[in-house]
């Protein structure tokens, strides 16, 4: 008996190993096909650089104490041009260091987009799943609410909410969550309705698995890829809309945020001080572009229509 069980356990351990390898290989395959597209690679490189900048901000620049998210003010050196000693990218009218704002702005943007994407994905996926699984009147009511949200243009809606809540960074997060969750609800509902009719869901029901297990094992993993694509695209869009709101002045004044910085610099543009708005503006552009490129690349690989071909 001992002989038998020992060989069994060896076999099992050996095979578990290969289960892990197979999964890893499949993920590597997916990554490989994502990387086969040159524009995606460009996007990915920019994304990685941005993320490094955001994560290493305290290393790259001296944090402004006590609150590093506040721009340091050097009133003596206000309006200095780029390449001034101590201010590589120049300063704004009010003495804010543009280089510091650009670097810590990446950190602010990452914080903003990650928080908003996480909250909207959780909210949207939950509500979309409920609508798709329960169906009937619940679905009807939830989707009409979603329609109301979708009928108002993204930016104007976010603007209105942020304006009502008052200018603060937290309120921008709240406004963006309110605006961005609906898309995930829509996507998830459509996916759940599509997947729950699959024979493998019926097979799981016939074998007697519980509804929660069927949702977690069959429906959720097979519905999730469009949500992931949308989340990647939104990582860019959220920063774009967030910067717009800050630019208009719905964020706290003086924080290291690209939109705030652009707005601070715009007064000087006509006087020839182009740098204070250009560098943070360029960052917003690159950030949104990079995440859109990566999102498009992911869509090509993960799109449900090409799923069966793989």
């Amino acid at each position: 008996m001992t002989q038998d069980s020992r060989t069994n356990s060896i076999v099992i351990n050996g095979l578990n190993d290969s289960a892990f390898k197979v999964r890893l290989n499949r993920n590597l395959e997916i990554i490989q096909s994502v990387l086969a597209n040159p524009t995606t690679v460009i996007g990915l490189v920019i994304v990685i650089l941005m993320l490094m900048m955001a994560l290493l901000a305290p290393v790259i620049t001296e944090p402004n104490m006590p609150d590093p998210y506040q721009m340091p003010r050097d009133w003596q050196a206000a309006r200095s041009a780029p390449l001034t000693p101590g201010h590589v990218l120049g300063t704004t009218n009010r003495g804010g260091d543009v280089y510091y704002g650009v670097v810590w702005g990446a950190r602010t943007s990452l914080k903003l987009s990650l928080i908003v994407v996480c909250l909207t994905v959780v909210l949207g996926v939950t509500i979309g799943s409920i609508a798709g699984i329960v169906g009937g009147k619940v679905d009807e009511v939830l989707m009409r609410i979603v329609d109301v949200f979708l009928s108002i243009p993204e930016l104007i809606f976010a603007l209105a909410i942020a304006a009502i809540l008052g200018p603060s960074f937290t309120n921008i997060i709240l406004a963006l969550v309110v605006v961005f969750w609906v898309k995930y609800a829509r996507i998830m509902r459509a996916q759940v309705i599509r997947i729950k009719q699959r024979d493998y869901v019926d097979a799981a029901r016939i074998m007697g698995d519980s509804k929660i297990q069927i949702y977690l094992k069959d429906i959720l993993p097979n519905s999730f890829s469009p949500v992931m694509v949308q989340a990647t695209l939104d990582m860019g869009n959220i920063v774009l809309v967030g910067a717009t709101l800050s630019f208009i002045g719905l964020s706290e004044a003086g924080i290291a945020e690209w939109g705030v910085l652009v707005s601070e610099g715009q007064a000087g543009i006509s006087a020839g001080r182009w740098w204070a708005s250009t560098f943070p503006g360029l960052m917003v552009f690159l950030w949104a572009l990079a995440f859109n490129l990566v999102g498009d690349g992911l869509r090509d690989v993960l799109d449900p229509r090409t799923e069966t071909k793989r």
């Binding site: 289960a19 197979v22 999964r23 699959r198 024979d199 493998y200 019926d202 097979a203 016939i206 074998m207 094992k217 069959d218 993993p221 097979n222 799923e307 069966t308 793989r310």
Partner: peptide, 16 residues
């Protein structure tokens, strides 16, 4: 138990 017609649709593509 049941065996379905479409063997593509009856096996979850994300499970081993």
């Amino acid at each position: 138990q049941m065996v379905f017609q479409d063997s593509f649709a009856s096996l979850s593509p994300r499970q081993l």
